[in-house]
Design a protein around this nucleic acid. Structure first.
Lengths: 213, 213, 213, 213
DNA sequence: TATGAATGAGTTTTCATTCAT
DNA sequence: AATGAATGAAAACTCATTCAT
């Protein structure tokens, strides 16, 4: 990859390579943010080149998060696009959990977002990220409103609360690899239910409460 | 503070001074973990002295977290101690939210727990922390079981899910000071409801769904 | 050992306990100089107490070295005390090597002497150490002179050169435990003869040359 | 030195500058290993730059030692290269002592080798260092074998013992600058012969004994 | 005498970012 | 555009020594 990326397509490929390397290393390293040097090496680029595509390291990870969230919301959108009746709700929840299950880095990156990224990111970039996210979320909320005949804004609210429950449970139930063995001991059983099962149950309860008059 | 902490009481005071300094700096610094040097200076001690009371920096913050959680759970316990009828549930939720409101650093410290502490903390210390937490939680869960005539274990489950929703919402709705002005703009309204109001509403929905046959 | 050491005997016992602990830890730690805290703990004393017996940490190790050297020289003295004919020389060398073999910390402490102790030790203390050593050495040299009918001073010279060859070979042939496995590979054979064998051979050659007209 | 070392030659110059600074400071500091910060400053580089050329501080000093030894052995090789008769042996010893005399840091660095480097150096690096050293030594040994018609391996042995005697005498006779004045007193005369004279005499004795049937 | 609490100097290494080439 | 050499701030932790009790 010594050649120069002249046209837009090449540039997008470089950018994507950086993001891919960042994601892969983040996961491989046990969810420690990798150094720029490693990301660059993994993407087959020089360190300086990374800074032609992202102004700071945080920007890389924000872009990653944006991608992840976009994927999650798009998937929800797709579900609510077609015909939908309230009876399909369990199907939605199931698919949502399924999506999270097949995108394991999403919730891990997310846990980093609050405590690390938002603190160091220049305001303008955080603003952009949040704005895009809001747009997508509101858009998805509207579809929920329609699908379930809810008052305007209610869908967005439900989705936010759904995601809040999700991220909260994840952080309560996910542990670093080294801890897993330790927590397998029976005295920890109460705090070690399976994340997926727990999330399904909790979301079912929440939605039931939310949609009950 | 050239005086020496000889007896147990004085030592506890020193320990408390370190924790106080750590907590205060963490909040003042915009939720960045402060350096040991700053903690020591703030506590009026030399750097080395801090290491007489805590083996590592992480240990300081784990102790802080343990304190915070203990306070929260104790408060819940107190509520469920006396006579309690299911009709008092809104009162419980209200008090819970109130407690969080008067202990603003709790959720901020908590956000650090997953991403920072669990990665760096020696296994033995993390284990102790989790074990104590589990004990308290299970104990509180039992009281909930009794108060609401629930099957064994259900109370713990409800409390965990309640806290998950809480921490998830907090991370979605809390922003660094610098961002608050930016997000006051109307286009961000959907993602900027007041945390307290939002939490009350979301918990009401969750508990309603959870306790509904 | 909480009692106070009032009389001289008790004091000597304390001092000896410190030296014993220092020697033992030095050997146990793979020849790293242990911290004063560990020495104190191992000797059953408080840290501060160690400083009642030795002004600095270096002083402890110099005292240790002095003990070791005294033992070595005394042993040589004992050998040359009785009737002695030049034909007994191989016996002397054998006994000398034997002594080193049964006092494995001697040469290890010695290797530390030049590079560490002599640099940090206050002049007065180093002076005392060297003076005592010189006295013993000259005394032993005199016995050698007599035993072998050598001109005055020659025995001291021979002993110094003997020890020089010894310490030099030791440093060339001794390795940290971790390296021993590595150096067992055949390509290192030339630099890995057995120390004892090598020393015996080298000393035999040296003395032969030295006593040959 | 804001200029960048792009090509191999410039890089070698940087590396050399670091080594030069390290050597000079080691000697100037009274044979204490200097901090990386001081080495960098002395070499006109930033601290981080040093780590572009050496992975650890120990690596710097091992490189220094390797250079010194290579120089010494090469010099011996040069001597034994041409025609050589056993009668030239005093010439060899003289030249060897001469070389040490003109490279005063060699033996001082060497004293550091055993006690400091071998304890902290990663195994792989120590292995490489020892391997290179062994190769050079064996090579030189072979030349000695040929020159003196000795059985295979005997030359290497003689060289090792020669160096052992050298390093041992050095450590017995070299003192930190502060001590020199003190030891000038007449009572220390027996342990203060001139190193050079002493080494010449001792080596002559050793080689005489070694080559005598 | 004995203790052990307190001190704070001292050092290696990492790594995001810049900028000369 | 791309490179990668150079930078230097930043931070945790150790430990010999002191001295109040």
């Amino acid at each position: 990859m010594t050649q120069r990326a002249i046209d837009t397509e090449d540039k997008a490929a470089r950018r994507a390579a950086i993001l891919r390397a960042a994601r892969q290393l983040y996961v491989a390293d046990g969810y420690q943010i990798p150094s720029v040097a490693r990301i660059a090496a993994d993407a087959g680029l020089a360190k300086g080149t990374v800074y032609l595509y992202f102004r700071t390291k945080e920007e890389i990870f924000v872009a990653l998060l944006a991608e992840e969230f976009a994927g999650l919301i798009d998937d929800a959108n797709a579900f609510f696009s077609g015909d939908f009746s309230p009876a399909d709700l369990p199907g939605f929840i199931g698919r949502y959990v399924e999506y999270l299950d097949t995108h394991p880095e999403l919730l891990r990156l997310d846990a980093m977002a609050y405590s690390v990224l938002e603190q160091n990111l220049p305001e303008a970039q955080l603003r952009m990220f949040k704005l895009e996210l809001t747009h997508r979320l509101v858009e998805a909320g509207k579809r929920v409103d329609m699908a379930l005949s809810l008052p305007a804004g209610r869908g967005t609210q439900l989705l936010m609360r759904t995601y809040a429950l999700t991220r909260g449970l994840w952080q309560s139930l996910d542990y670093p690899p080294a801890m897993k063995a330790v927590l397998a001991a029976p005295e920890f059983a109460p705090i070690r239910p399976d994340f997926r099962t727990e999330l399904l149950a909790a979301l079912a309860e929440y939605w039931r409460g939310a949609l009950t008059a």
